[in-house]
Design a protein around this nucleic acid. Sequence first.
DNA 1: ATTAAAATATGATAAAAGTCATATTTAGGA
DNA 2: TCCTAAATATGACTTTTATCATATTTTAAT
Lengths: 143, 143
Amino acid sequence: MFSNSSKYAIKAVLYLAIHSSESKKIRVKNISEPINVPQAYIAKLLQELSRHRIVSSTRGPNGGFFLSDANMKTLLIEIVNVIDGEDRLNSCLLSLHNCNSEKPCPLHDFARPFRTNFIESLEQNTIEDLARDVKRGKSFLPL
Amino acid sequence: MFSNSSKYAIKAVLYLAIHSSESKKIRVKNISEPINVPQAYIAKLLQELSRHRIVSSTRGPNGGFFLSDANMKTLLIEIVNVIDGEDRLNSCLLSLHNCNSEKPCPLHDFARPFRTNFIESLEQNTIEDLARDVKRGKSFLPL
DNA sequence: ATTAAAATATGATAAAAGTCATATTTAGGA
DNA sequence: TCCTAAATATGACTTTTATCATATTTTAAT
């Protein structure tokens, strides 16, 4: 479904959504441990996310990563697309090039309902939505 | 979702379901080409499937792979489990160890409906069912 | 029996994904 | 201005997954 990297990225952004703000930046060291991802690895992912304006950052002393108000509106699909690329979720279950709705492969119709709904959910929900669920006790940490 | 290997395995078994029988064995050479999988690679997968009695085979001249009547009843989930292992489909979307229905992770409820339905379908449908769809013109080759 | 055609077993190589290390740049504080 | 703390950039290393190659075993036909 997701690559390892995407899972890590979602965890990191969600952690920032819950714990950071413009006035409360968090550095890599202090993100890596609570989300259980090796520091050097999450650093690399955060840089990629930062380049795509999915997370915000400032360098130097008292710098770190945080989520701006705009960042909070990031759709989940955007994170996945940046890390895994656009194809991963859209490709046919058997990776057949010629498979489409008109000429569905043997697994196409089989998987369609779950897949389209899943992608739609990723397209409709923001990181803020996930963070809200945690705050309301509907879902749980740790990551 | 599936590994590459599982996709290949499903394609091979499905090909055998459509084209082989106890009296019409097919050798690796003649499977690999129509399903677009390298010969040495599909050979290895077929051996694994054979070891688990998901496909049948005989050696020597005029030997080859085929699906017995019993093989036709193989559930899709069995193929995936043999090739990818049982964990792949069941693990939490974020690969969190502590995630479960009582203490769902932030993506748990989000993904639940699609995932459970998908797994149930794999548990209820056989390779014969997929082959039938092709024969009835409901789904299409090539693989 | 001998031969040839097939699967099987085993392991080697290649590519991709995941992980780690180091040097550079930026910015704040003394 | 200088020092230090942080992100950033780059690339090397490791592990896993995918792919390929070769030697062995089995079986049918002659």
